[in-house]
Design a protein around this nucleic acid. Structure first.
Lengths: 190, 190
DNA sequence: AAAGCCCGTTGACAATTGTCAACGGGCTTT
DNA sequence: AAAGCCCGTTGACAATTGTCAACGGGCTTT
């Protein structure tokens, strides 16, 4: 699975063989079965995590037991809780596997070390955060201005593959509505 | 007003006198009266914009004419449409002044030039985007999981000063609800 | 100083979305 | 192969939020 990670890295910047070796030396592979947790609420998160295969979700559970999915991470995406990582505070999020998945983990301190030594990695992460911010902004815009049906339509258009891959009750949770509401919307879609 | 910008920059990194001079040589001051536009939907945005005084808002207008406020930017924040800036595509957002305001503008190309020449500036912007991403994530979390009343309570707690400064119909729009709903929520708050 | 507009509030009602319960199909586990 | 659980759907009803109209106070503009 390291080869997938390597392929991803090379698609982002021209890392040297030595740099790749350094990065991979710090990497640990973690296999997760469907429904298995990568992070549970209350734990401190201390890794950079690259999804090599499968799909994970980050979510909160509210007082009534309802889940609210902040995001999904499929292969070639990153996951984890940056806020917990940086503050050292316990995470308010849960992360678990939607499908059987493989994740490449690099410990926080080791990653920071690599980031200082490898400028291309530093820039890659900056670019990643930059794009993540734009994506998050766009999502806020849809969430505050769209009706439930419009949210679902926009989701289908932006992530058509997700709709086939992710269970509908999770899509509903991601969109901020109940399964029943999504089910009724789908019935009324032409 | 450049002194406010300089003060901000020095609070973020140890810029040299020469660097500050370079940055300020590229800066243009723009005064906006309340309700005056900095950016209108359909225009291409091409600046980095620092708010030296006052308050601006970024918003969309939907098919029914309702406004949806993506964010506010008060003094010492940045504003603009990064997406339009980077893609060169017309912006989908409007930005106008909530109060009489002063903005420091630096043209995109000039800013990129400065960013390449001044490492501290580069890192400052990366840090800014990084934090912006975390803030955006947190907002998504509240928006998809809170009721209207919870959203307002969270807003008061996170930005108590905003509630005094920004008209209520704009707060409502920021929170993704109508003025009437916010008005009723406030009536029922103890 | 007068006129007009912006703003927040309220009421009545409608539309949207959530809650609860029940069901059946199919996948997973034993 | 059987049992059980997960998942999506549906109906009935409730709660939440939006829509429309009207109003008054006060700020801004002329």
């Amino acid at each position: 699975m390291f080869d997938l990670f390597e392929k991803y890295l090379l698609s982002k910047a021209a890392f040297t063989a030595g740099e790749l070796q350094q990065i991979e030396a710090a990497s640990v592979l973690r296999k997760l079965r469907k429904r298995q947790f990568l992070l549970q609420e209350g734990e401190v998160w201390a890794y950079y995590a690259f999804v090599a295969s499968g799909c994970l979700r980050t979510y909160t559970v509210d007082a009534k037991g309802a889940e609210h999915i902040l995001n999904f991470a499929v292969e070639n995406w990153w996951t984890g809780d940056l806020q917990s990582l940086e503050s050292g505070q316990p995470s308010g999020y849960n992360i678990d596997a939607v499908e059987d998945s493989t994740v490449v983990l690099i410990k926080h301190e080791q990653f920071e070390h690599l980031r200082q030594q490898i400028p291309a990695l530093h820039e890659m992460v900056n670019g990643l955060l930059h794009r993540s911010f734009l994506v998050a902004q766009a999502r806020i815009q849809t969430v505050i201005s769209y009706s439930a049906e419009e949210k679902y339509r926009a989701f289908l258009q932006q992530y058509p593959a997700f709709a086939l891959r992710i269970p509908q009750h999770m899509v509903a949770s991601y969109l901020g509505m109940t399964t029943e509401t999504l089910s009724r919307i789908r019935r009324n879609l032409v």
